[in-house]
């Protein structure tokens, strides 16, 4: 196996596995709409990185972080529905990107660049993935309880604002990495699809988490190999594979209930 393929696989598995795991917490309506706009906020960052020849992550992360903080702060201050705020962020991200993104070099920002990821970038991806897993593990029960009922969580001494922020921060990190893998347009799918697959086939929380991580990583492995042999772009292949896996699990679920 050549080194570049290995680097792509390692970083791809890390990013999609972590995204799948984190996605299992995106159950409440409020949270499920966030990843998309954040990923689109990555586009202006990606444009700047491309213009100045920087690593994508360096350009993307500050924008996503800023978007995360903005959404968190605006939601607390304005009490506007999250759907409304994220729609604004979404438009802001895409609009700014369209203004500054050099269209002839837009591939990396739009559909990812996992095939050219460097050893250093791979090391950073591994490090960030481990940190996200650690943080997500720490806050999992608290976030799940918050998802069920905020006052129940509050009465258990959980600082909901703090955990919502940490959660958004983790989404920001995953989205920033996701741009490498599948590009800014479809990063949200990395977070949303594996959880949906896992929900179809799990009966308890443990298997739900495991299946989301496995199906996220699995779709990425299939996508990267399909690209290796057939040369279609990797990012869309990963997301379409994930969507196919989802449809398969839906069919199983329907058959099981009949």
């Amino acid at each position: 196996m050549n080194t570049q393929l290995l680097l792509s696989l390692i970083s791809g598995i890390c990013i999609s596995g972590v995204a799948g795991y984190l996605g299992t917490l995106m159950l409440s309506k409020k949270m499920s709409v966030i990843a998309g706009p954040l990923a689109h906020l990555a586009l202006p960052g990606a444009a700047i990185a491309i213009i100045f020849g920087l690593s994508l992550f360096v350009g993307v992360f500050p924008f996503v972080l800023l978007g995360t903080i903005l959404i968190w702060a605006l939601e607390r201050k304005t009490r506007l529905p999250m759907e409304n705020l994220t729609a604004i962020m979404f438009a802001f991200g895409v609009g700014t990107a369209l203004l500054i993104l050099p269209i002839d070099k837009a591939d990396a920002a739009l559909i990812g660049s996992i095939n050219t990821i460097s050893p250093i970038e791979t090391a950073v991806v591994i490090l960030i993935s481990l940190s996200v897993i650690y943080m997500t593990n720490k806050m999992y029960s608290k976030m799940m309880l918050t998802n069920i009922h905020e006052d129940l969580a509050r009465s258990s001494g959980i600082n909901i604002d703090l955990y919502n922020f940490l959660y958004l921060l983790n989404i920001g990190l995953v989205v920033s990495m996701g741009v490498y893998l599948v590009g800014g347009l479809i990063t949200a799918a990395l977070i949303a699809i594996p959880a949906a697959i896992a929900k179809n086939i799990s009966s308890d929380l443990k298997s739900y988490k495991i299946w989301a991580t496995i199906s996220g990583a699995g779709a990425t492995i299939i996508g990267i190999f399909l690209n290796y042999f057939y040369n279609f772009p990797t990012g869309p292949l990963i997301v379409v594979t994930g969507a196919c896996l989802f449809l398969i699990t839906v069919s199983f679920k329907i058959l099981k209930h009949e």
Binding site: L27, L145, I148, K199, S203, L205, K206
Partner: peptide
Amino acid sequence: LTKDLPLTVKDFFNLKE
């Protein structure tokens, strides 16, 4: 509120700290 979650009764108790 829990109907759509793959949450067993044991899981629900494990959310306590």
